[in-house]
Every structure is written in C-alpha cells, then in structure tokens.
C-alpha cells in the first residue's frame, strides 16, 4: 500500500518516527505518551466505526497501544508511516474481535439499529462527525468493513478483498453499495452538516 499522506499533513519523517520508536523500546514513557497522543484519535475512531461500541473501542485502543509499544524494538523505519502502522494494528485487532464474536455466536452479530452509536457522543470530534459515524454504523457489517479498509485505511482493492476473504468483485460491490447508502442518507443533509462543521471549527475543540 503506498503511503498517501492525508490532506494537509506534513511529509512523512521516517527518521523522527524511528527515533520515537527507539525511545519507546528503551522504556521511555514520555515517548510512549507521544505516540499515543499522535494516534489515539485515529485508533479510537477505527474502533468506533468497526466495533460500534464505545467501550469496546476504548479497550481496542488500549490493546493497540500495548501491541505497538511491545513491537517498538522491531520497528522498521521507512516501511510505513507510523500512524498507518498503528491504524493497521487497530484494524487487525478489530477484525480479530469481530471474528471471535462471530465464532462465539456462531452467527453474524445482529446489526445495530440506525444511529446506534450514541453513547459517549461528546467524545466524537464534532456533531457532524457523530452523524456521519452513526450513518456508517448503520451499514451492514461487510459494507462497513469494505468502507473502512478502502476509504479510511487506504487498502488496495486486492489487499482489502484478501483481508475480508472475498473476491475483488465482491469487495467492490460491497463498497459501492455502502457508499450509495451513505450518499442517500448524508447528501440531503450535506449543507447542514458542513455548516455545523464550520461552526465547530470556529469554537475551541475539546483537547485530548
């Protein structure tokens, strides 16, 4: 997967990432906190989008950082952006959790009703983000996972299909259906959502 820096981000500084990971590997707690502060928002959002349970998303975030800190001595600089690597760990842990749930229930877990992501609403970055998150949460699980991997994690179609153990055609079908549903739900409210976003940007955001 090529690392595509999101809009507005600085170029990837692999050496700084490597230095941070070396400090974590040597037991520097301040460096551990720095990594957490850099990527907690993304990791937590992945948990919320995929697992749809705020408490479980927090457990997931904790597991992700424990996994990352322990793997710090083995960090290979230059292979991936640190945040992308963290997101991949979080995504893999989410998929493991879903798989275990499925195995435990011997059936696909029931989908939450529309707008089910309501607990801890205040912790979502913005009102708009909350409503978009709720729309994503209302998608069937496989459409949600296709969107997560392809849109949020920048997996290629082949990688995402492999991860979900489906064909590329099936993946693209899931992704297209998911995006169509989101478009139908969100686009009629687009102006309102974007205006809410602008207002939120004008106020002081809650800092982690």
């Amino acid at each position: 997967m090529p690392d595509r820096p999101p809009n507005g981000t600085l170029p990837v500084d692999y050496e700084a990432d490597a230095a941070l990971m070396r400090r974590i590997a040597s037991g520097d707690k301040t460096a551990g906190r720095e990594l957490m502060e850099r990527s907690l928002g993304q990791v937590l959002a992945i948990g919320r989008r995929i697992l749809r349970d705020p408490a479980e998303a927090e457990d997931l975030a904790q597991d992700t950082f424990i996994r990352a800190w322990k793997a710090a001595p083995d960090w290979q600089p230059g292979q991936a952006k640190l945040e992308s690597w963290m997101c991949r760990i979080a995504t893999n842990l989410c998929l493991d959790r879903l798989r275990k749930k499925r195995e435990a229930l011997m059936e696909t877990p029931p989908e939450l009703r529309d707008g089910a992501v309501t607990a801890d609403d205040a912790l979502i970055a913005s009102e708009t983000g909350l409503r978009v998150m709720a729309a994503i949460a209302a998608l069937p699980e496989r459409q949600r996972l296709a969107l997560e991997l392809c849109h949020f994690q920048d997996y290629s179609n082949i990688e995402a299909a492999d991860k979900l153990e489906i064909s590329v055609d099936a993946l693209e079908s899931l992704l297209a259906r998911g995006r169509r549903k989101l478009k139908a739900k969100l686009m009629p409210q687009r102006e309102e959502l974007m205006s809410s976003l602008s207002q939120a940007a004008g106020s002081t955001p809650e800092v982690m």
């Binding site: 707690k29 937590l44 998303a57 978009v132």
Partner: peptide
C-alpha cells in the same frame, strides 16, 4: 469530505491515563 469528519474521535483524559 463528509466521511473525513468521522476519521478521528477524541479520547478522554481518563482513557489516555488508562492506556498509559
């Protein structure tokens, strides 16, 4: 653009403390 608004979620200070 709308999807991007759901890319981040703010964690509480309590969660940060728990993780650390």
């Amino acid at each position: 653009d709308l999807l991007e608004t759901a890319r981040h979620a703010d964690g509480s200070e309590l969660l940060a403390h728990r993780i650390m």
